[in-house]
């Protein structure tokens, strides 16, 4: 893993991956992107995904539910022909970043993709 570019290159090896990006959800800023963006536009997709991520991350109903309260880890959006996955990156300093992955639903395996995303985001910030 060599930083953001290495992380995104590995994300593209997940079966069914069409595009991936690292996004700051405070503003919707794209820190890096590879492959295709939905509608051919990484920045627009990042802004939409960031809005969704912020709502989920900041909503007490999700973060304080159940016995083991804690931050939201993943978001899964299923759409006709696609999966859109958001995996929050946990850092030991202030940040608000997630890894976004757009998958072709016919080729992807949702469980495998979620497992790989979790591993990728952990290794991105592992010294």
């Amino acid at each position: 893993m060599t930083g953001i570019d290495g992380c995104l290159a590995e994300a593209m090896t997940i079966p069914g991956a069409r595009g991936a990006g690292l996004v700051d959800w405070t503003s919707g800023l794209t820190l890096g992107a590879v492959g295709e963006g939905p509608d051919g536009d990484h920045e627009a997709a990042a802004a939409d995904a960031a809005e969704l991520a912020r709502l989920a991350f900041e909503n007490g109903a999700f973060t304080r539910a159940g016995r083991a309260a804690g931050p939201v880890e993943d978001l899964v959006v299923t759409a006709r022909g696609s999966y859109h996955l958001i995996r929050f990156v946990e850092t030991a300093f202030d940040s608000s970043v997630f890894l976004y992955l757009w998958l072709d639903r016919a080729e992807a395996n949702l469980a495998v993709a979620l497992f790989r995303l979790k591993d990728l985001t952990a290794r991105l910030v592992l010294a």
């Binding site: 060599t2 290495g6 820190l31 030991a92 300093f93 970043v97 991105l124 592992l126 010294a127």
Partner: peptide, 14 residues
């Protein structure tokens, strides 16, 4: 080995 490259990039860009 104090930081990963990813951590430096995320913190610096922010």
């Amino acid at each position: 080995g104090r930081l990963s490259r990813g951590e430096l990039e995320l913190c610096h860009l922010s």
